[in-house]
């Protein structure tokens, strides 16, 4: 049984048919990169996996839970699915530590001591042990994004969704965030990333999904897809981004 499965998923924004029957399976421990031109539906696809976007047809199942538009079910699902955003979305009025502890206190009902200990461990893991009491506004983009990753990990998700998490960063800060992802992969975390980092997708990712016109256009093991693209669309896309 796959950890994540999508069957014939269709999504419309009004008249605009964004996802046109997407099928996808992701197994536990896999690192899957979703690539494609802007407007091809990659982010929408990712956001359908945790209920941030509704879909109109088909089925999305994550960790044996059907993703439906139901607040209670989505809250349960959120314990299995973490998400990191392009713009970090840290809570500006809370310290780094409070950002990481918020959900463990409110959702998992852990004690402050326990939450604090977990937050300290996670921040150490992303290399920010000394920033516990800093405010997000005083951190660099790369540091903020690592806090956001630690915040997601606090809920011990089974799969982490990354929506262009390095796109808002200065080039020299991209590496530190990708390093954390690599580390997570080594620990066996399932990662689904929408990304423009082709080198990362090729070197770290297990599998690549190329989206085009709202469909999974081409998919396969990373090294093969990059070395030997089959469709003209992927060939021209790869030529354009290189």
């Amino acid at each position: 049984m796959s950890l994540v499965s999508l069957d014939e998923v269709h999504k419309y924004y009004g008249e605009n048919h964004v996802l046109k029957g997407v099928d996808l399976r992701v197994n536990a421990g896999e690192v899957v990169s979703i690539i494609g031109r802007s407007g091809s539906g990659k982010s929408t696809l990712l956001r359908c996996l945790n209920g941030l976007e509704e879909y109109q047809q088909g089925a999305v199942i994550v960790d044996n839970q059907s993703v439906e538009n139901d607040d209670y079910k989505l809250r349960l699902l959120s314990r299995s699915v973490g998400m990191v955003f392009q713009n970090f979305n840290l809570f500006p009025h809370m310290t780094v530590g409070e950002n990481v502890m918020l959900a463990t206190k409110l959702v998992l009902k852990k004690s402050v001591t326990e939450s604090r200990q977990l937050a300290e461990e996670l921040l150490a893991k992303v290399g920010l042990a000394d920033k516990f009491d800093a405010y997000p506004g005083n951190l660099s983009g790369g540091q903020q994004q690592r806090v956001a990753i630690a915040r997601s990990l606090a809920m011990s998700p089974k799969v982490l969704l990354c929506d262009e998490i390095t796109s808002a960063l200065d080039p020299e800060l991209v590496g530190e965030v990708l390093k954390v992802l690599e580390q997570l992969k080594e620990e066996g975390m399932t990662l689904i990333l929408v990304t423009h980092e082709m080198n990362f997708a090729r070197d770290v990712g297990d599998r690549v999904v190329f989206m085009n016109q709202g469909k999974v256009w081409e998919t396969g093991p990373s090294d093969e897809v990059f070395a030997n693209p089959q469709t003209d669309e992927l060939k021209s896309f790869l030529a354009a981004v290189r």
């Binding site: 945790n50 209920g51 941030l52 607040d71 989505l74 809250r75 349960l76 959120s78 314990r79 699915v81 973490g82 998400m83 955003f85 713009n87 979305n89 840290l90 809570f91 918020l102 959900a103 409110l106 959702v107 915040r151 997601s152 809920m155």
Partner: peptide, 21 residues
């Protein structure tokens, strides 16, 4: 920003918790 609501939602907070905290 809409992202603040979304971040709270993906962390499993209720609508009320997101609003208050």
């Amino acid at each position: 920003p809409k992202g603040q609501w979304e971040a709270g939602k993906t962390l499993g907070l209720t609508r009320r918790q997101i609003f208050m905290h």
